[in-house]
Amino acid sequence: MTFHWMQLVYALVSLFIVLNVGLIIQGIVRKIGARLGRRHGIRWYQLYLDLFKNYAMRSAVSHGIMFYLGPVFRLSGGIGLFLFMPVIYGSVWFQNFSGSGDLILLTYFIFFGTLGMALGAGESGHPYSAIGITRGLSQTTAAEIPLILAIIAIAVQYQTLSVTDIVAAQQGGILNWTLFTNPLATIAALLGFLGSMMRSPFDVVMAPQEIPVGPPTEFHSNFLAVLQTNRAIFPMAKTILYVNLFFGGATNWPVLIIKVFLLYMWPVFIGVAFPRFRVDQSIRWFLRIPTLIGILAILFI
């Protein structure tokens, strides 16, 4: 695939759109959660204000180079994941650089941010950061296993690692979706999905009541703002990846946003219904049924 400079502009436009979609969806989800708890809750645009506020802080204390790079790595993990997959199938504008990377690269990007944060949080010297990131890494590793098994399953099924080709193979009707052609892989991946969305029962990493905010304890001002930007982009990028792999992709923005919103609600529903796991419990949970389903998915293609 040849590179055109206009692709860069297209990629920035789609990045901008997905940042806004991420902020708004998360605001709305928090609003829904609050209304269910019979509160008014935050305003739907509150996340924008928090972001502006944190970027506008005048001072910041750095603990060294890795501390500085931690949020940068985290954000590049989110942006990288987003940029190397097609957002809208068949659209010239929103193809991003999907021809340049494959599924293996994307799975690497999913993990990349957490690793970067581990280095950054470690250098902050705060014990809560270190505990938080240790928990985060262990849990993410366990949650990746069902996802990777599912990805192997669909790679074997479609005989390709290119996300664009996988989306192309699912076009032409709802029954062509991986959800129906390979339900076991979809279930395994969806269970793994729960582990990386930072929602209950897998949110002990960031749990404000147990260890104050976990890895980002020492991150503030602009550092925190970069992390917040990533928290808008990364869950959206991950959800779009799932839509591409298992739910037939999308050929226009409204369809994409509806699918993303519905898929985003899946960990939210689980989150409001189930209490929090400890890390050892969540690792055991991921290594049992989801992993088993993942292995079955590979066996029964």
């Binding site: 609050a34 935050i42 928090d50 104050p212 905010v213 925190l224």
Partner: peptide
Amino acid sequence: MTPRFDAYRFGIQWRPTPRQAN
């Protein structure tokens, strides 16, 4: 901070660390 008075609706939130608080 709980449903009775719910300060969150005015953009007021609680943070557990001084680094992030205003």
